[in-house]
Design a protein around this nucleic acid. Structure first.
Lengths: 348, 348
DNA sequence: TTGTATGCGTTATCAT
DNA sequence: ATGATAACGCATACAA
């Protein structure tokens, strides 16, 4: 234990004191520091000097109260520890920083109260705008968003007709791309691991899987579909179940990458070679895909790009385009082929 | 493109309007809403009712300006995308939420200006306190912290004599534990992959490696030490270099887990069996350790616990204990043995 | 170009 | 127990 005393209660200088030291009025000092052109060069210098001398730092609360803007936005995601949202946050962060905004990151842990509280942040004027990424967008949440009185952008599917800016990805098509990719590699018996029942991303992925099988003319059977929960352990459990039910399967498509990694672990334990005996593909394309062995093929849903787009839409709203009609932007998914679906013989 | 019009400019009610509707003065309304005991029960109810009717939400800027506190703290880390800091953020977030504080997460990308700007956030009164995690704590940064005039806690090593709260971990001992773990498994020729030169975590890990080899009486040689940069690719490069120089090595200790994963990938490509031919251990114990095959042994540096401790120290400061001497808390590292160092024959 | 003065919405103090 | 009112620190509209 150190025993240095902490110096607290450092007197902070106000702009009034800066003005006094510079020998001008507060009004002038304010204009000078905020870079107004209608202030004499010499005065600006004097004021700046005084500000430095007094180590003046503007009070953020006072400034936002007066200016009615905080220069910051919020990103609300289900779980900051999830690699998908980490990537999204990175992208949003980037754009926000470029345009001079501070990003406030909120993790809701899928608790609805946390989400509504975050939306209230807009009413509290804690942030100027908000990007929301929710696993279950309820009607009441949409109403809260519409009535928030500040720009909002939702990432993910939204109930039809909601007057809210929206960035989405066609994950159903993404799922069908995965199936087609596997089929193109010669795989015939393609199993599927579902996402958490009831969540927004879950249904379209299942739908895309089924649709693609039908279109291609491959076997579609409930015994090839296993329940999942978007976790690695859930992927393990699903794999065990599938291998039990359908030992003849030669490919597995998982609703997300984490479950695909779990599936690959089970296959490894069971001495099933990937991709020779069983090919595996996930969805989301998280960095961890390249960590595992073999590297995991995946369907990219462009989280980074979606984050960037959402941030740009939001910040555009904040710089004046506030009263245009709500926009919906859709990004396209694409397959990232790696070792877990590499045709036998082909090597990187 | 949807064409719903966005409703902006929603008139927000002020406490003055709430007071008017409830038929009381603003002062009373404020006391009533903030739960003062010196207000008649009936009045409280009337005011609450009015607040609900008008959808009143207190203005955060005004409140912080008046109260001189924002009820929020900041966590400043080098990179929010790094799993280590994700875990740290999770822990801090948790504690902050429990104690009614909002957490503002700042990623500096190792840019010094970003760090100092974040520290300025204290002077701007944007946050009430700050937890700083930096890869290079310079003297000038320490001075900025000491003069910030608000509670600060640094996670990581700090120049001696700094009057700042501090949570650290003895990573040198952690490194030596890793080496001893490998030696205990019968490994004799233990290589080391360094961290990025010049960063704070780098030196003690190397020192611990060397010290342990010496204490145990194993070979210590520069040819067993490879440069690294804390990335997966860096780990790959180091592994290639080490295998070239010392094909006889039977174990590798890496300065972090990401590099260890890279090393394992190279070993897999070279058909070296892990752990039978070459054992591998990393450091940090990130969740990804359990994703790879075989699962990666690691030295836990208790990032979660460190985050929790730092948050608690900071929040304690904020609730009155501001003027006690600076504290230093050190947590102990420990080995998490997994498959990559499992003695041959032993299975989970 | 600069000074003066008012108000942002809230909380806290001091009377009543 | 409640009402009136003065700050908090800054930015701006208007006057000079």
């Amino acid at each position: 234990l150190s025993s240095q005393t902490l110096s607290r209660n450092v007197r902070r200088a106000t702009i009034t004191e800066v003005a006094r030291l510079a020998g001008v009025s507060v009004g002038t000092a304010s204009l000078a520091l905020n870079g107004s052109s209608r202030v004499a060069e010499a005065t600006v210098l004097r004021v700046r000097e005084a500000a430095v001398a007094l180590a003046y730092v503007p009070d953020h609360a006072a400034s936002s109260l007066r200016r009615r803007s905080t220069e910051s936005i919020a990103l609300v995601v289900p779980d900051v520890a999830n690699p998908v949202y980490v990537a999204m946050a990175k992208a949003v962060q980037q754009v926000a920083k470029e345009r001079g905004y501070h990003l406030s990151l909120v993790s809701t842990d899928n608790v609805v109260e946390e989400e509504t509280h975050a939306v209230q942040g807009l009413a509290r004027r804690q942030v100027d705008g908000l990007i929301l990424c929710s696993l279950r967008v309820t009607e009441s949440l949409v109403q809260a968003l519409e009535g928030a009185g500040a720009p909002v952008c939702v990432i993910g599917r939204l109930p039809g007709g909601a007057a809210v800016d929206n960035v989405r990805v066609d994950s159903e098509t993404g799922a069908s791309l995965a199936v087609r990719h596997l089929a193109g590699g010669g795989h015939q018996t393609i199993a599927f691991v579902k996402g958490t029942a009831g969540t927004a991303p879950s249904a379209p992925r299942l739908a895309g899987y089924r649709r693609a099988l039908q279109e291609i003319g491959l076997e579609s059977d409930p015994s090839l579909e296993a329940a999942g929960d978007f976790t690695l352990e859930g992927g393990r459990a699903a794999a065990l179940e599938l291998l039990e039910r359908r030992p003849d399967l030669d490919a597995v498509f998982c609703s997300n990458d984490l479950m695909a990694i779990g599936v690959m672990k089970v296959l490894h334990e069971r001495r099933k070679r990937v991709p020779e005996e069983v090919a595996v593909i996930g969805m989301d394309d998280i960095p961890e895909c390249t960590y595992c062995t073999p590297t995991l093929s995946s369907v990219s849903l462009s989280v980074g790009q979606r984050g960037r787009l959402a941030a740009e839409m939001l910040l555009d709203r904040l710089s004046g385009l506030a009263d245009l009609p709500a926009q919906v932007v859709t990004v396209a998914p694409y397959v990232v082929a790696r070792e877990s679906t590499r045709p036998a013989g082909a090597h990187a």
